[in-house]
Design a protein around this nucleic acid. Structure first.
Length: 364
DNA sequence: GCGACAG
DNA sequence: ATCTTGTCGC
């Protein structure tokens, strides 16, 4: 890693250049495109990509170049990382106190100073009001990590198999976060009968960044699914139903589809909030269920499903399945507003995490 | 006031 | 997602 000392990017100033030679291996997207499927692709993520997901380190290396009297913003750091959508995640990491370096020199883009940074900034700059007049330092990374990660998603989208696979059961999958993090799986038959659960303690990858959910929860879920496979709870014809999106994603590679490709399993996504796209006209389906298409420029990327007058949820195909297959399947197993498998996995993950606070040896 | 980016 | 009192609804 090298930086160009100067830093001050006042009017006409240069951004801080960073050439991270040890952050992420070179040409990860290209390697992903050339990588095989099945265990080989899973191994690529487990041993090459996931160990590199250290956003705290990336941010620390960036802000160590901000000198006394200079400031930058949460948004500038996020842009430097490759996606402005990461601004809140940058703020969250800094407020957690896990970032090394002069974190007090990171302010809001409107000039406000985060709580806790006012005193150290005042002694460096004088009147904090004048901070507004400073031009925040920008960053230019030769290989922005979030660009690398989104390029991997694009590479996967290009090589994605479009066929469908026969399904013999459905398994909901969700993670609950706290002092410990718990991943839960809940298996159901195609007719909606509950068949079993599994929970396991996990470690997340990146913090949550919209569009990159797979890099947060994927490592946890892959770990949990591997375990469930070993125990015979799921096989190649188990449809994984994930709390999130599949095709309903800016790069058509939401967590459900990316996880499905990596694990070579059929997957679909069910989310509570619409991430993108336009909701069409609702049409009545079976048993008081109404359904509308979710489109992005003519392309159908998902469906909005409403049970009765309840709020809708958003279903999208992941890997080895399609909406036409998923919609009837999911419609037959609704539990209130949501599909039973994700609802149960969600509740189970939550309960298990909270229960573990009182009984630290209670995980299965 | 607008836009509003899954968990 | 999590942090949280009392409250509303099936």
């Amino acid at each position: 890693m090298t930086t160009d000392g100067a830093g001050a990017s006042g009017p006409g100033g240069d951004p801080i250049h960073i050439d991270p030679d040890n952050w992420l291996p070179r040409d990860l997207a290209g390697r992903c495109a050339r990588c095989g499927t099945g265990p080989e692709l899973e191994g690529f993520f487990r041993s090459v990509v996931f160990p590199e997901l250290d956003m705290g380190y990336w941010i620390s290396e960036m802000i160590r170049g901000i000198g006394p009297g200079e400031v930058t913003t949460f948004g500038a750091i996020a842009r430097g990382l490759g996606d402005p959508a990461a601004a809140r995640a940058v703020g969250a990491l800094i407020s957690e106190g896990v970032i090394e370096g002069p974190v007090h020199r990171v302010i809001f883009s409107d000039g406000r100073v985060p709580r806790g940074s006012m005193d150290p900034l005042s002694s460096e700059i004088g009147d904090p009001v004048l901070i507004k007049l400073e031009r925040p330092v920008e960053f230019e990374l030769s290989r922005p990590p979030l660009i690398v990660l989104s390029d991997i998603q694009k590479a996967l989208a290009i090589r994605a198999e479009r066929g469908t696979r026969n399904v013999n059961s459905v398994c909901g999958l969700d993670v609950s976060y706290g002092s410990i993090n718990v991943c839960a799986l809940s298996k159901f038959t195609l007719s909606g009968k509950h068949e079993g659960d599994m929970t396991t303690e996990v470690e997340p990858g990146l913090p949550y960044i919209p569009g990159y959910l797979f890099y947060r929860e994927g490592p946890c879920m892959i770990e949990a699914v591997s375990k469930a496979r070993e125990e015979g709870m799921i096989d190649g014809e188990t449809l994984l139903m994930i709390d999130g999106n599949g095709m309903l994603h800016p790069r058509r590679m939401g967590i459900a589809r990316q996880l499905g490709m990596v694990l070579d399993l059929p997957t679909c996504g069910a989310s509570k909030r619409l991430m993108m796209g336009r909701v069409g006209e609702y049409r009545n389906a079976i048993k008081g269920i109404s359904i509308a298409k979710v489109t992005d420029d003519e392309e159908v990327i998902g469906a909005s499903i409403k049970a009765g007058e309840k709020k809708a949820f958003y279903l999208s195909a992941g890997h080895l399945t399609d909406l036409r297959t998923c919609i009837p399947l999911v419609s037959r197993m609704l539990s209130g507003r949501h599909p039973a498998p994700v609802k149960r996995a969600h509740d189970l993950a939550n309960e298990t995490r909270k229960r573990s606070l009182k009984n630290p040896i209670g995980l299965s």
